[in-house]
Computed example of a mutant assay.
Amino acid sequence: MSDAKVVLELRNVDKSFGPIDVLHEISLKVRAGEVLCLLGDNGAGKSTLIKTLAGVHKPTRGEILVDGAPVTFAGPRDAQDRGIATVHQFGGTYPLMSVGRNFFMGAEPTKGWGPFKIFDRKTANRIAVEEVQKMGITRIDDGDRLAG
């Protein structure tokens, strides 16, 4: 895995809120195909780190690199456009919406042109089913199935 491309890197990232320092010189690399686990006590800065990676907060110092290039996110949508999104622990799904709709919430595939674009249900369902099955959730075989 050490030969895999570094897709996300933090270099000496600090985050302060006024006089309160929350993150201190955080450096990490995430390679393509790698899963990284973030563990820590309550108040250790896990949520602040995730929010900084996802564009909610800007680092006070240090830099974030995506595919080797330094980035500054204008906000969460900007981070999402670069491939960084957050799936929250609670309230992460809408039970009365389909698996395909939940999977692409906020970044739905579309078909059509200009003002005539519509949600591409077939593509969303196909991709959602393929990806959840890759994660080992094999009982999902229909993207139209309700998430709840």
Rank of each mutant, 00 (worst) to 15 (best):
residue 2 S to F: 10
residue 3 D to R: 13
residue 4 A to L: 10
residue 6 V to W: 01
residue 6 V to M: 03
residue 7 V to K: 06
residue 8 L to H: 03
residue 9 E to L: 01
residue 10 L to I: 10
residue 10 L to M: 10
residue 12 N to K: 14
residue 12 N to Q: 14
residue 13 V to P: 00
residue 15 K to E: 02
residue 16 S to T: 11
residue 18 G to E: 14
residue 19 P to I: 08
residue 19 P to D: 15
residue 22 V to P: 05
residue 23 L to P: 01
residue 25 E to G: 13
residue 30 V to R: 11
residue 31 R to D: 03
residue 35 V to R: 10
residue 39 L to A: 13
residue 39 L to Q: 12
residue 40 G to L: 09
residue 41 D to C: 00
residue 41 D to I: 02
residue 42 N to G: 02
residue 43 G to N: 08
residue 43 G to P: 06
residue 44 A to E: 04
residue 44 A to L: 10
residue 46 K to C: 02
residue 46 K to V: 05
residue 48 T to E: 04
residue 49 L to F: 06
residue 50 I to Q: 04
residue 51 K to T: 01
residue 54 A to T: 11
residue 58 K to S: 12
residue 59 P to K: 13
residue 61 R to G: 04
residue 63 E to N: 00
residue 64 I to C: 02
residue 66 V to E: 01
residue 67 D to T: 08
residue 68 G to Q: 01
residue 70 P to W: 00
residue 71 V to Q: 10
residue 71 V to C: 10
residue 72 T to Q: 09
residue 73 F to S: 00
residue 74 A to M: 11
residue 76 P to L: 09
residue 77 R to L: 11
residue 77 R to C: 05
residue 77 R to P: 01
residue 78 D to L: 02
residue 78 D to H: 10
residue 80 Q to F: 04
residue 82 R to A: 15
residue 83 G to F: 04
residue 86 T to W: 12
residue 86 T to C: 07
residue 86 T to K: 13
residue 89 Q to D: 03
residue 92 G to P: 00
residue 93 T to C: 01
residue 93 T to P: 02
residue 94 Y to H: 07
residue 94 Y to V: 14
residue 98 S to Q: 08
residue 101 R to D: 13
residue 102 N to K: 11
residue 103 F to N: 04
residue 103 F to L: 07
residue 106 G to Y: 14
residue 108 E to M: 08
residue 108 E to H: 06
residue 110 T to K: 15
residue 115 P to M: 07
residue 116 F to Q: 11
residue 116 F to P: 01
residue 119 F to Q: 00
residue 120 D to A: 15
residue 121 R to G: 13
residue 124 A to N: 06
residue 124 A to V: 07
residue 124 A to H: 04
residue 124 A to R: 02
residue 126 R to N: 04
residue 127 I to S: 06
residue 128 A to E: 03
residue 128 A to L: 05
residue 130 E to A: 10
residue 130 E to D: 14
residue 130 E to V: 05
residue 131 E to C: 12
residue 132 V to H: 01
residue 132 V to T: 04
residue 133 Q to F: 03
residue 134 K to R: 15
residue 141 D to M: 00
residue 141 D to R: 12
residue 142 D to C: 08
residue 143 G to Q: 06
residue 145 R to V: 12
residue 145 R to Q: 14
residue 145 R to W: 04
residue 146 L to I: 07
residue 146 L to A: 03
residue 147 A to P: 06
residue 147 A to Q: 08
residue 147 A to H: 08
